[in-house]
Simulated assay, not measured.
Amino acid sequence: MIIALTYYLGGGTAEVKTLLTWLGFPDPKTIPVSLSHDQGNKTLKIFAQAWEPSRDFARLREDLAKQIAVVAKKVSWRSQDILILETHYNNLKKAGYNEADSLQSVIVNLKG
């Protein structure tokens, strides 16, 4: 019921649906086992939009940091994705999250 209400109050957009899929103790069955490049790219862009507004919600931000790292590991990234990956790396590093290491690893592999 709470998820349905959140979806409705959030405007029912694809972005809200993506956030609800990944954040707030989601059902593990709803988390994709793998993501296409396009899905991963869209997901990280939505997460980037949610980063700053999440600053006053510690548990949400922790969950967001964790899921950013999860998404980063599930996708075969391309060199043109370095900007979004670096954005997340910088946000995570600045906020003191260890998940920044996962992003750094992906970036280093891309720059190879």
Rank of each mutant, 00 (worst) to 15 (best):
N41Y: 13
P53G: 10
N98Q: 15
T18Q: 04
D38E: 15
L9E: 12
E52K: 14
K17N: 05
A72C: 13
A48H: 09
F47K: 06
Q49Y: 05
E52L: 06
H88L: 01
Q80R: 14
R78E: 12
W77M: 07
D38H: 14
V71T: 08
K45C: 09
V70S: 10
L20K: 01
P28F: 00
L64C: 07
V75I: 06
A14K: 10
F47R: 05
I82S: 14
G40R: 02
L35E: 09
A50C: 06
D27Q: 06
R78M: 11
E99V: 12
L20F: 06
S36M: 09
I3M: 13
R61F: 06
V16N: 02
F47Q: 03
V75N: 09
E52V: 02
K93E: 15
G96Q: 11
A58G: 02
T13F: 06
A100Q: 14
I84V: 15
Y89N: 11
I46F: 05
K93T: 00
V16H: 03
L64I: 02
K29S: 13
A14D: 08
I3Y: 13
G96L: 11
E62S: 09
S79P: 06
E99Q: 15
A14T: 00
S54P: 07
A100W: 10
A65E: 03
L23R: 08
K42D: 11
K42P: 01
P28T: 05
N41T: 03
A95Y: 08
N91L: 13
T30P: 01
A100M: 11
H88C: 01
P26E: 08
I3R: 15
V16R: 03
G10F: 01
E52N: 12
V70T: 15
E62M: 07
A14I: 04
E86A: 14
K74Y: 02
I82G: 12
S54A: 13
F47I: 01
A65T: 03
L35H: 08
I68R: 08
K42L: 12
V71M: 06
F47E: 04
N41L: 15
I31G: 01
A95M: 06
G40P: 01
Y97C: 06
L35Y: 07
V70Y: 12
E15I: 04
L60M: 11
I82C: 12
L83V: 14
I68T: 13
V33H: 07
T43N: 13
T30C: 00
V33D: 07
T18N: 06
K94G: 04
K93H: 13
A50F: 07
Y8K: 14
T30N: 00
